[in-house]
Nucleic acid binder design. Structure first.
Length: 496
RNA sequence: GGCGCUGUGGCCGAGUGGCUUAGGCACAGGUUUGCAAAACCUGGUACGCGGGUUCGAUUCCCGCCGGCGCCUCCA
């Protein structure tokens, strides 16, 4: 069975073949670390994770790399993102969102970048984003690759694909790369007319073509700056991914490159141009796969609408009013097809919580029945065959889940086989894991347990009023109560 | 204006030229239960609008309307 993927480069479905048999080189555009990552970022990242896990299910050995962008790129020529982050950090410290003492000096961009990098990794691990467990090896930081960027820029200049403009800025010459526009469907003429009045005239006049993009900008005053053959300054945004992908995954091209749909142009278009021209190769990535945007309650997520949520806003209950288990957020963010807009809602989260609870219960039941012993299964097992066929169809997760959920409800006469099947399914879904369950401890849990005991005692006396009162206290604390036939009371924390 | 994606029942969300027409949540009825919850069983409601092709279209074609992204900050 071959994996079918929708390639943004050709705008059609294609059978996946890797450059090296059995191995996949996968690159995902990662977060900028000027602030906490939001749920839209994680939708895109978790799509990359789902792709990686699916490839692994199909027995590929996947080398996945994702960058961390920690260079403070310029905004509007005035402020840069690191300075903005420093200001925000000072506010966040005041409001308590960032604990006092978390950062010694908010004016040190490296401290800010490091703080948000660690925060990102923490969130990503809770969400079972596999690559976050491979930091730092497969999660490179842009500022560690300045030297490589400079070498690539030099090579582009040597090959006449880049030039130093009269103001000292190094630009990539899009006219030197006829295929520029291949990914986004743009042409240089259209770009020229589309640019309109957005870009200041002074800047444009120094470029050979309006679409030429910056590779290095000399700027003594920039908050993060490095020495270079073109003066002290900082690199352009696009060059870092070309360099890190090349150094970590090899110069002879990568198999799959992923990112959010907004990165198609200009970012990925520019990566292709730089990489192909610097390496003298025809291909950079053979498959480009882009995830669509996330909406919140039917609207675009934006700070001004107040529907802009970070992952930790969701975990802690800031977003919806109740705490959300990371597995529920993960499920919510992966449950719909990556090429469809997804609508993030409180109701959706509650739905997801129900499914996740069912999965957790199912797994613990099988663990109990088998003592953790599993049978041998492979992908020819009926459920796994259907599950993987669905995923092979451009990661059709909805269809895959539509097979799994009814299967869970079925009778499971051979729990050891079912557990093995479940583990294979879960290796892709990433729902249950020991780490999150262990992290579930709650200071009021002992109190809740005590109410549970009260309820059990009251029930044995048939004192229904006392039983109901105890149950209400448990429910109010955000827990759910289940009665078992033998008279015991099982208490579970609500997942969302 | 250009490029690309998209519109399915109360909600989320697959899929298909006709066949038993996903799955989840919610809702209704039932089993169970002190009452709930959970679990299990049963049930109803679809394919943006207008044309065309066809014996037959939600599915193909054309047009229209709506939503989303990009067109040098953006997952």
């Amino acid at each position: 069975m071959s994996l079918q993927l929708y390639n943004s480069l050709t705008n059609q479905m294609e059978s996946f073949d890797s450059i090296e048999p059995g191995k996949v080189r996968l690159y995902s555009c990662g977060p900028t670390v000027y602030d906490f990552a939001h749920i839209g970022n994680f939708r895109s990242f978790l799509f990359g994770d789902l792709l990686r896990r699916t490839l692994e299910l199909f027995d590929y050995q996947v080398h996945h790399v994702m960058n961390i962008t920690d260079v403070g790129h310029m905004v509007e020529g005035e402020t840069d993102k690191m300075s903005e982050a420093a200001n925000r950090m000072k506010e966040n410290k005041k409001s308590g969102r960032v604990p006092e003492g978390a950062i010694e000096d908010p004016n040190d961009p490296y401290q800010i970048a490091d703080y948000y990098t660690q925060a990102f990794l923490e969130d990503a691990r809770k969400l079972q984003y596999k690559i976050a467990f491979e930091y730092p090896d497969n999660v490179p930081k842009a500022t560690d690759y300045i030297d490589g960027m400079q070498k690539m820029i030099s090579r582009l200049i040597d090959r006449d694909h880049a030039y130093v403009a009269e103001d000292g800025v190094v630009y990539f010459s899009v006219e030197s790369f006829p295929r520029y526009g291949e990914l986004s469907g743009n042409t240089l003429e259209k770009l020229q007319s589309g640019a309109g009045g957005r870009v200041s005239d002074e800047n444009q006049s120094r470029k050979r073509h309006p679409a030429d993009f910056m590779l290095w900008k000399p700027d003594q005053h920039h908050v993060m700056k490095w020495d270079s053959p073109w003066g002290v300054g900082y690199p352009g945004w696009h060059i870092e991914c070309s360099v890190m992908a090349g150094q970590l995954l090899g110069q002879d091209g990568i198999d799959i490159h992923t990112g959010g749909e907004d990165l198609i142009f200009p970012h990925h278009e520019c990566e292709i141009a730089q990489s192909c021209c610097a390496n003298g190769s025809d291909h950079f990535a053979r498959y480009w796969i882009h995830a669509r945007f996330l909406m919140v309650e039917g609207e675009k997520m934006s700070k001004s609408k107040g529907n802009f949520f970070t992952a930790r806003d969701v975990f802690t209950g800031v977003a919806t009013g109740s705490q959300v288990h990371p597995a529920v957020l993960r499920y919510e963010l992966i449950k719909s097809h990556y090429r469809a807009n997804m609508n993030f809602t409180k109701k959706g989260l509650e739905d997801s919580a129900g499914v996740v609870q069912r999965m957790l219960d199912f797994e613990s039941r099988l663990e109990r029945e088998t003592g953790g012993e599993v049978a041998e299964v492979d992908r020819s097992h009926p459920l796994l065959a259907k599950f993987s066929a669905a995923l092979a169809n451009d990661l059709n997760i909805s269809e895959a889940l539509a097979e799994v959920i009814p299967w869970i409800r079925q009778e499971h006469p051979d729990p050891r086989e079912s557990l093995a099947v479940w583990r294979a399914v879960n290796s892709v879904l990433g729902i249950t894991d020991e780490e999150n369950e262990a992290a579930d401890s709650d200071p009021i849990f002992e109190q809740v347990q005590q109410w549970g005991d009260e309820m059990k005692d009251a029930r044995s006396r048939k004192d229904w009023d006392a039983s109901d009162a105890a149950r209400q206290k448990i429910l109010d604390a955000g827990y759910e109560v289940q009665l078992v036939k033998d008279g015991s009371v099982v208490i579970k924390k609500s997942l969302a």
